[in-house]
Computed example of a mutant assay.
Amino acid sequence: MVRGIAGAFLAGMMAGPLAADEAQTGDGQWWWDDGWWQEGQLNPDIENYEVEVERLEYERDDVIVPAMVARPADGEDYPAILWSHGRRGLDHLAELHVKRLAARGFVVLAPDLYTGRFIETHPLDHDYELEGDLDRGLDELLAREDILGDRACLVSITRGGYKTLKVAVTHERQVDDVACWAGYYPHVQDPNLGEPHQVYRYASEFNQLEIPVMILIGDEEQYQRHRTAKMAADGLKDRGGDVTWIEYPGVGRGFDFRNGDNRTFADDLAARDAMVRVTRFVNEHLRKE
């Protein structure tokens, strides 16, 4: 099991993101890389940047939304990412993920969608106003003078997947303002719907995505989350959508957020590989502009 995960990570340092539903063995799989296997080449094109963090606020409908912006500290311009947290909010672990993204060479704006609306962490119900607050954050990001181009990519974790989906589709920001969508084990159903919808359906908005999509998930993710995300990915792909599905064998829920005694070697390998793949995915769609 560990050998399979390690192969995925090492290949991830070189291989481009390719979706595959076949067995996770042999060349030709999404994790395979000839450069590593034949020549020993490992991670030659992923740079590390020192990160600086800025705190700001923006307003929507008389609500003040705090946000953090993480970016390379060298003063140069970089591609833009709008990042959305899940139920846990923009806590310490979430901020670490934002900084890890910025260290890959991005300007990442991550709103704290709960504080301005006095929502406690880990809410059960979803407040639809948060989607509008996140959409307003996209305006704030695209107005910055330190980003490359005039579009951003959306990257999210868990329930943030639903919020970014609504920004792209319901708020009509895809294509013109948003170039791609990436979700770590994303929730792609309205959280306020009942159990049958959570297990057997996904948000119809997903079928309306017109931009490239990447989903990164462990094969031991919660059943309802994994099933719904896979149905959404397959449905969009069947409609001709550009979908990359990355599934890590032996990896469970929250692999990029477990810390301390809860973190495993497999979690760390998956998290590093996922960061490389998201980096390449975003650069592919923003640096070409």
Rank of each mutant, 00 (worst) to 15 (best):
R3N: 13
G4H: 13
I5D: 00
A6R: 14
A23W: 06
Q24D: 13
G26R: 12
D27V: 07
Q29K: 12
W31C: 11
D33F: 03
D33K: 11
D34H: 13
E39I: 06
Q41C: 08
D45K: 11
N48E: 09
Y49S: 01
E54A: 08
E59H: 09
R60G: 03
I64E: 08
I64L: 12
V69G: 00
R71W: 02
D77C: 10
L82P: 02
S84A: 15
H85A: 07
E95P: 01
L96D: 11
H97E: 13
A102D: 04
R104C: 05
R104D: 03
G105N: 03
V108P: 01
R117M: 09
I119M: 07
T121Q: 10
D125T: 12
D133S: 08
D135V: 07
L138K: 00
L141I: 05
L141A: 00
L141Y: 03
L142S: 03
R151Q: 12
L154F: 10
G161I: 03
K163N: 13
K163E: 11
K163L: 12
L165S: 06
K166I: 08
V167P: 00
A168N: 05
V169G: 03
V169M: 04
H171A: 09
E172C: 07
Q174N: 06
V175I: 11
A179P: 05
A179D: 02
C180E: 05
G183S: 07
Y184F: 15
Y185S: 11
D190K: 10
L193R: 15
L193M: 13
L193P: 06
G194L: 04
E195L: 15
Q198E: 13
A203C: 14
S204Y: 09
F206Q: 01
F206H: 01
Q208Y: 07
Q208C: 05
I211L: 09
G218L: 05
E221R: 06
E221N: 08
Q222F: 14
Y223V: 08
Y223D: 12
Y223I: 08
Q224K: 14
Q224R: 15
Q224Y: 14
T228D: 04
A229M: 12
A232V: 05
D234Y: 07
G241Y: 08
G250Y: 01
G250V: 10
G250P: 01
G252P: 06
R253M: 12
D256I: 12
R258C: 00
N259Y: 10
D261L: 14
D261F: 11
N262I: 05
F265K: 07
F265A: 14
D268C: 12
D268K: 12
A271C: 08
A274D: 02
M275I: 11
V276H: 15
R277E: 06
N283A: 10
H285T: 02
L286C: 08
K288V: 14
